Simulated scan of single mutants.
Amino acid sequence: MSLAAATRDAVRERPFLYDALAAGVVNYTAAARTLDVDGDTDAVATALRRFADELADEPGYESEARVSMQSGLGRVDDGDALLVVGETRLAGGAGSLTGIVASGDLEPAALGDTLGRLRAADIAVEAAGVGDETLVVAVERRDGPDALRVVEAAVGR
């Protein structure tokens, strides 16, 4: 495996570094020192620079969605649910969670961005999913208003 390929693989194991490279906010030499890649630090830094240049040309996702908040979400065993992830089914009127619902022109990548923004805002997510022009994030009730603003900034109009 070439040094460039090994460097790319190492970056893909660290999504935060991948995002930082795409944003152009990385000290390449410092990042090269943290990667477990056989090679000279300067050569790894050069491989990182080249990878970052390629990432800058990749288009991001576009979304335009209406965002709303639904209170009282909780776990249910059956029936209609706002969000189903594996065995977890969340429906209105069944608990104390708040659902942030974005509806419109959404791409699945919007979920990753939204979750990253919520993590940065220190808002814990209980469950989340995206599909067929709808994105749902369930948070604790007290975090609902802040989560609404975060999701609006990520995908809203």
Results as ranks from 00 to 15, higher is better:
Ser2Arg: 08
Leu3Trp: 04
Ala4Pro: 02
Thr7Gln: 07
Arg8Tyr: 05
Arg12Gly: 04
Pro15Glu: 08
Phe16Ser: 15
Leu17His: 08
Tyr18Gln: 15
Ala20Ser: 12
Gly24Ala: 09
Asn27Met: 03
Asn27Glu: 14
Ala30Thr: 03
Ala31Lys: 00
Ala32Glu: 03
Arg33Lys: 15
Asp36Lys: 13
Val37Met: 06
Asp40Cys: 05
Ala43Tyr: 01
Val44Ile: 14
Ala45Asn: 05
Ala47Arg: 02
Arg49Asp: 13
Arg50Asn: 12
Ala52Trp: 01
Glu54Cys: 06
Leu55Gly: 12
Ala56Cys: 08
Ala56Ser: 15
Ala56Lys: 12
Asp57Gln: 15
Asp57His: 11
Glu58Met: 14
Pro59Asp: 14
Gly60Ile: 00
Gly60Phe: 01
Tyr61Trp: 10
Tyr61Asp: 15
Glu64Ala: 10
Arg66Tyr: 04
Arg66Ile: 03
Ser68Thr: 15
Met69Ile: 11
Met69His: 07
Gln70Pro: 01
Ser71Ile: 00
Ser71Asp: 15
Ser71Lys: 08
Gly72Asn: 07
Gly72Arg: 04
Leu73Tyr: 06
Gly74Tyr: 03
Val76His: 09
Gly79Lys: 00
Ala81Lys: 02
Leu83Arg: 08
Val84Trp: 01
Val84Asn: 08
Gly86Tyr: 02
Ala91Cys: 08
Gly92Lys: 05
Ser96Leu: 00
Leu97His: 10
Leu97Gly: 03
Gly99Arg: 06
Val101His: 05
Val101Thr: 11
Ala102Tyr: 04
Glu107Ala: 13
Glu107Trp: 02
Pro108Arg: 07
Ala109Asp: 13
Ala109Tyr: 04
Ala109His: 08
Ala110Asn: 09
Ala110Gly: 13
Leu111His: 11
Leu111Met: 11
Gly112Met: 07
Leu115Trp: 10
Leu115Tyr: 11
Arg117Tyr: 03
Arg119Leu: 06
Ala121Gln: 10
Ala121Asp: 13
Ala124Glu: 10
Val125Leu: 05
Val125Trp: 07
Val125Ser: 12
Ala127Tyr: 03
Val130Lys: 08
Val130Gly: 09
Val130Ala: 14
Gly131Gln: 05
Asp132Glu: 14
Asp132Ser: 14
Asp132Leu: 06
Glu133Gln: 11
Leu135Ser: 07
Val136Ile: 15
Val137Asp: 05
Val137Ser: 11
Ala138Lys: 10
Glu140Leu: 02
Arg141Lys: 12
Arg142Leu: 07
Arg142Asn: 09
Gly144Lys: 08
Gly144Phe: 00
Asp146Tyr: 06
Ala147Asp: 13
Ala147Tyr: 03
Leu148Lys: 10
Arg149Trp: 04
Val151Ser: 14
Ala153Asn: 08
Ala154His: 05
Ala154Tyr: 03
Ala154Leu: 07
